[in-house]
Design a protein around this nucleic acid. Structure first.
Length: 572
RNA sequence: CGGGGCAUGGCGCAGCUUGGUAGCGCGCUACCUUGGGGUGGUAGAGGUCGUGGGUUCGAAUCCCGCUGCCCCGACCA
């Protein structure tokens, strides 16, 4: 590759719209350009990285016998109607000239399962693993962070089809290990976390994240127990406090004029927020439910919805709150609700002694409230959001710490969630029809582009791992008017390419400082300079991650070997 | 969808308060110069000031509507 014939639109200044380091560097180093909100063009350098990423994944898929396919982007409405996913909010819809309707592919469980239901007959054909690399379309409410969250993005997605649960579990484990191999090969430090499967599937699932402050997700971790979970899915164990027993006080109604929020009531009554029993009214599939939490806690609607088994769950409207409690919003309480509705309390509420709760009447609260004596919830459940400082769910003697993370991969056991409605079945060994069990596995390739940079850059630019770098080596000619140097650099460029090492020859008529700056910005793992030492037969070799002045002189004859050694060392 | 911000040559910005010839730096073109971390100089090219309307003799500037983009939140298969 010759720089004078390449598209290298590097920017000296930071584009105003970019906040994240990865976003700024992708723009400044000439990798991407924006076409619309959440819609990005990949310039030649970025496309090379994407293809490298795809290749690493492809090789790991071949290693586990996962077959590469390419499914359509257009998905007919009828197929998505079979699984009830035509009307999910992120779908881009379009119609043809005969008014037939289609979705732009946002994921491919249905399309992949459709092939299997048509072509797979017998247990002998299972398990079957297939994958593709493809552009997905999702009408994101808010794209952000360059290629971190976009409306059109490149994704690896794989699907497993198994005979039984044991097979599905084995496939899941196979992919989990494959993911570790993939990210390790890219030199990407990652964490595996228990996660919420969203609507895609609610069986076992696991996220692969890289930890960075730029991340959108909060990960809770326990180093001692080697535990990690996405905060939205992290379990909270039911643990009794070790506090000494406190005698129960009598109920007392106290005036709290205008104090509606937890903070206001806690301040007004001079009690700790965790003494307050927060009383929330939800509507689950049309039925009101009262949820109780300690005042310093937030409800985890994902856990709550799952516990109730509801399809829809949302905070009740003001009118419903008033009809359930008989009081304006802000004064709901556990004692003396107007309507008899199901009451679900978070585990912690069980251990509240002499708590405070709304009086179900305007401008009043009740003190001395004790569970068991004054109210009895239908259920105690894990209903709150876990936060840093909470006990670890697997080793409660340790406390969780938090960190931000970018989700780069997610794997799911799907069971029969899609194969059942789509009627994907096979004839088992015993001659009976049986439903196929599925798994699905995704990696956001274009998001990975940003994540790799978040995980590896400095103030001068990107630092690529050789496995994903757009080019392995940049050969810089200090001054192209030095014709022997230029000629020798061209020869080295050709030799390196012949040995299978991708290389950019920076033969532009620029000062050497410009070439150094661009090389650092673009992030080639290894740099070779034809400069001062060339007259005496040497060139300089330096890895991008080395210090500025760490270049080593090698003889021109030894340059190819030296580059190869350096790359091997960087790849380890 | 709620809150905030921005829109002026390719990029970064000033000009707007107080209406009167559209400006700066970088980049780009040509030539000279320089040649180890974005060299210095000379001469150039390039802008319907996001868009529609209104006020005015006159609008980048004042008023109203719309659109686009960014950030926070909601949401996020």
């Amino acid at each position: 590759m010759k720089a004078d014939r390449y598209l290298l639109p590097t920017l000296r200044e930071v584009p105003a719209d970019a906040e994240l380091a990865s976003h700024q560097l992708l723009l400044r180093a000439g990798y991407i350009r924006q076409l619309a909100a959440g819609v990005w063009s990949y310039l030649p350098l970025a496309w090379r990285v994407i293809r490298r990423v795809e290749q690493v994944i492809r090789e790991e898929m071949e290693a586990i016998g996962c077959l590469e396919t390419r499914l359509p982007t257009l998905t007919p409405k009828e197929l998505l109607t079979e699984t009830g996913r035509w009307d999910v909010p992120v779908v881009y819809k379009l119609s043809d000239r005969r008014d037939a309707e289609y979705a732009l592919g946002f994921t491919h469980e249905e399309a992949m399962c459709d092939i299997v239901r048509r072509e797979v007959r017998s247990w002998r054909q299972l398990p079957l693993l297939m994958f593709q690399h493809q552009t997905k379309f999702r009408d994101e409410p808010r794209p952000r962070g360059g290629t971190l969250r976009t409306r059109e993005f490149i994704m690896f997605d794989a699907y497993s089809f198994d005979r039984d649960v044991a097979g599905m579990d084995a496939s899941f484990d196979t992919f989990a290990q494959s993911y570790r191999n993939i990210f390790n090969r890219m030199g990407l430090p990652f964490v595996e976390a228990e996660a919420d499967g969203g609507d895609i599937g609610d069986l076992d699932n696991r996220e692969f994240l890289i930890l960075t402050d730029a991340g959108e997700d909060t990960v809770l971790r326990c180093a001692e127990a080697n535990f990690a979970a996405n905060a939205e899915a992290c379990a909270c164990p039911d643990i009794a406090p070790t506090d000494p027993d406190v005698p129960e006080e009598a109920l007392q109604t106290v005036p709290t004029p205008g104090a509606r929020t937890i903070e206001e009531v806690a301040w007004f009554l001079k009690v700790a927020p965790q003494k307050l029993i927060k009383t929330l009214v939800y509507v689950a599939d049309g039925t009101p439910v009262v949820v109780l939490l300690c005042g310093d806690r937030e409800v985890n609607e994902i856990k709550l919805r799952r516990f109730i088994g509801a399809k829809d769950l949302a905070l009740a409207s003001e009118a419903i709150v008033e009809s359930v409690t008989g009081a304006p919003v802000g004064f709901a309480g556990v004692v003396g609700l107007k309507q008899n509705v199901r009451m679900i309390a978070d585990y912690e509420v069980r251990y509240v002694r002499n708590g405070v709760t709304g009086a179900n009447a305007a401008d009043a609260h009740i003190t001395g409230v004790n569970p068991g004596r004054d109210f009895t919830p239908a259920d105690y459940a894990d209903a709150r959001v876990a936060v840093a400082g909470d006990p670890c769910p697997v080793a409660p003697q340790y406390l969780l710490t938090d960190a931000r993370g970018i989700e780069v991969g997610h794997i799911f056991k799907l069971g029969t969630k899609y194969s059942e409605p789509l009627k994907a079945a096979y004839v088992a060994e015993n001659g009976e029809q049986s439903t196929i069990l599925m798994g699905s596995y995704g990696i956001g390739n274009s998001r990975l582009l940003a994540a790799l940079i978040e995980a590896s850059h400095d103030e001068n630019g990107i630092i690529w791992h050789p496995s994903v770098a757009p080019l392995q080596v940049v050969v810089i000619v200090g001054n192209i008017k030095d014709e022997p140097a230029l000629a020798a650099a061209e020869t080295l460029h050709d030799e390196l390419e012949r040995t299978g090492i991708s290389v950019m020859l920076d033969n532009r008529d620029e000062r050497i400082g410009v070439k150094f700056k661009d090389a650092d910005l673009i992030g080639y793992p290894v740099r070779v300079v034809f400069g001062k030492g060339f007259a005496s037969g040497t060139v300089e070799i330096k890895a991008r991650r080395d210090a500025k002045d760490a270049a080593k002189e090698v003889t021109l004859n030894g340059a190819v070997d030296a580059v190869r050694e350096r790359l091997a060392e960087l790849s380890a």
